[in-house]
Design a protein around this nucleic acid. Structure first.
Lengths: 349, 349
DNA sequence: GCTAGTCTCTGAATCGATACAGACTGAATC
DNA sequence: GATTCAGTCTGTATCGATTCAGAGACTAGC
């Protein structure tokens, strides 16, 4: 058996309390005794206080959980999510806190179990769709949490997000200004199990995923302002947020007559996929993205920038060092339209 | 106070054991009582067994630690590390295990503390330099671990790596075959606190970081085979593994007379930085990388591919599902030379 | 010489669960 | 009618620490 704190105490001939103090309250005992204890501990091969036992007694763990809507291994393929994580990690470093990444099984009951069982002091919830079950579980545990978007249920929740709708409108306004009227909107999982490609939806509001919903609504706002109604818009579904899915979503789109002159994608990754699919034709169709990931610059993609690391950093900071002022717990970050070469005026026909 | 298992037991009028069984051994009590217990628990707002207490009693946690040599937030900027993590996450998902990312303070004593205090069942140690302290701490705690490279100290350690030296030699052989003899080698932190740019070193063996060391040695092997000795090689230091650092390392390199005709970088990220720095001149200098990250393909970078997700997946798998056969715990993955457009024959002068 | 104060160290209570051996009940078997 | 057995449930020991009030020894001050 691996020795415990009690074994060290016995070996040195002091009480358990004293050994404990030797580790975490050095001012509570004489330096001489302390080093005698530490030496003995080393000889016995005692690795220091058991973290789990310590957490139980102390009532906190020293780590925060990060929850992703998507499969965890997918999250690492999403450049925006990765930069968000980098921000979270930076804040965690500052607070000497570790990060627990919790994979969520697809089965909801099991997923609840995973969240119930996570040994953490709080959660950063990255864009959990309308899956309020996760938030319910977290609330039920009485743990603090931060989301990456405002929630419908107000309460005292803290979040750090952007004005998705306004940001989306800004790119769409740009395209509209260039004269585009025949436009396709492309989103990830516009409807959960829909196939890739064209899709009918009653309106942007019908999209279940809040981020996608906000962005589609913003796109639609700009188009509505110039008389292009929802029925005149081509809506495209991507089965996940990847380049390949973006490419798949527009397959065949430009084969018909009267194809759209522009594609507004709800993320850079999808937009890059569209560019991949367009190939040579990319010079004739305008494409926009969302997020401004690193590759967007290289590809010359017009997009909306939102501060990724910043978002992660602030999310973790709100969790680890909550502002006294409740309003300060609701953060809306600025976004910025970044115009590059992937958008241009409608060619006159 | 948040209710405990005992409170639920009292409320229902049964023993604590029975409530515990209701949660984790449903076959141990009648369905009727079980649902009565669960209902009462819900009414009381009992969130289910406390994960920390459960871990203490059960003796395991259900999560594994991932340790990075570099600052954790840097790790997320390294595309190879991210893909490695994606692999680890994929394996973790399969085993319903969470991932604890532990930031390591720069101060070694504090960093030891962080590793001692991590509540995990084992560690994936990503390329901890010669910093054996981390492995010592882990061994001291009696926890299993997997490293991403063979260790000098054999023991029963498990690892998943590649033959760095042979892989490096394969790209270098390719360059040598193209006629290059005046060559620069570029590595990250060749010497810990050295400035960016040219550097003198007794030999590849003198590099403290094992990965860098292996790769430099492989490069040197290929050059030695055609009579280019270590003193004839320009060695360049990058201060970290980033594009910017790669660019900074070659600043001014091509200004002198008799500049190298090729640069062999120890990672793709550095190589891409070199291409950035070269700009137009990239057409006249051959550059190679290492890893084959996504951007390497776009940039036309000649490189050595190593399976990134696979490495992560196997690392986690070795930890979570250790092979009975000890030799099966030592995995060397295949690598593959990927020739693209960034390398070409030496221009005749 | 007495009181107060400072240092060290101890003991018991506590954190919130799980495991295991056994007690009890009622039905089935011979 | 005695025995066996399966099905339920309980009690106690245990996981490995931290905390806090207080005991004892010693110094200082008056």
């Amino acid at each position: 058996m691996r020795p415990t704190l009690q074994d060290v105490a016995t070996a040195v001939g002091v009480s358990r309390s004293t050994v404990s103090n030797a580790y975490c309250r050095p001012d509570q005992l004489s330096a001489a005794l302390r080093s005698r204890i530490l030496d003995t501990a080393r000889q016995l091969g005692y690795p220091g206080p058991n973290p789990t036992a310590r957490s139980l007694r102390r009532g906190f763990v020293g780590s925060i959980g990060v929850l992703f809507t998507s499969r965890l291994s997918y999250a690492f393929t999403d450049p925006f999510a990765v930069r968000f994580l980098a921000g979270v990690a930076a804040a965690a470093e500052r607070h000497a806190t570790s990060l627990l990444l919790v994979p969520l099984p697809t089965d909801t009951a099991q997923a609840r179990g995973a969240v119930e069982n996570a040994a953490v002091d709080g959660f950063c919830v990255y864009c959990v769709a309308d899956e309020d079950w996760a938030l319910d579980v977290i609330r039920g545990r009485g743990l603090p949490f931060v989301t990456t978007a405002p929630r419908a249920d107000p309460g005292v929740d803290r979040y750090v997000g952007i004005d998705e709708r306004a940001a989306a409108r800004s790119v769409a306004d740009h395209l509209v200004g260039l004269g585009h009227r025949r436009v396709a909107l492309l989103g990830d999982s516009v409807l959960p199990d829909a196939p890739p490609g064209p899709l009918r939806l009653a309106g942007a509001d019908a999209a279940p995923h809040p981020t996608t919903r906000g962005r589609l609504a913003g796109f639609a706002d700009a188009l509505a302002a110039v008389g292009v109604g929802w029925p005149d818009i081509t809506l495209l579904n991507a089965t996940d947020n990847s380049r390949a899915a973006g490419a798949a979503a527009v397959a065949g789109l430009f084969a018909g007559d009267d194809p759209p002159t522009a594609v507004l994608a709800a993320s850079d990754v999808l937009a890059l996929g569209v560019l991949d699919a367009l190939g040579e034709r990319a010079a004739t169709v305008s494409v926009t993205g969302f997020d401004d990931v690193v590759d967007a610059a290289t590809a010359g993609l017009t997009t909306v920038r939102q501060p990724a690391e910043e978002k992660g950093r602030i999310a973790a900071e709100l969790l680890l060092d909550p502002p006294a002022d409740e309003a300060a717990g609701r953060v809306l970050l600025p976004t910025e339209l970044v115009v590059r070469t992937s958008t241009r005026p409608v060619p006159r026909s």
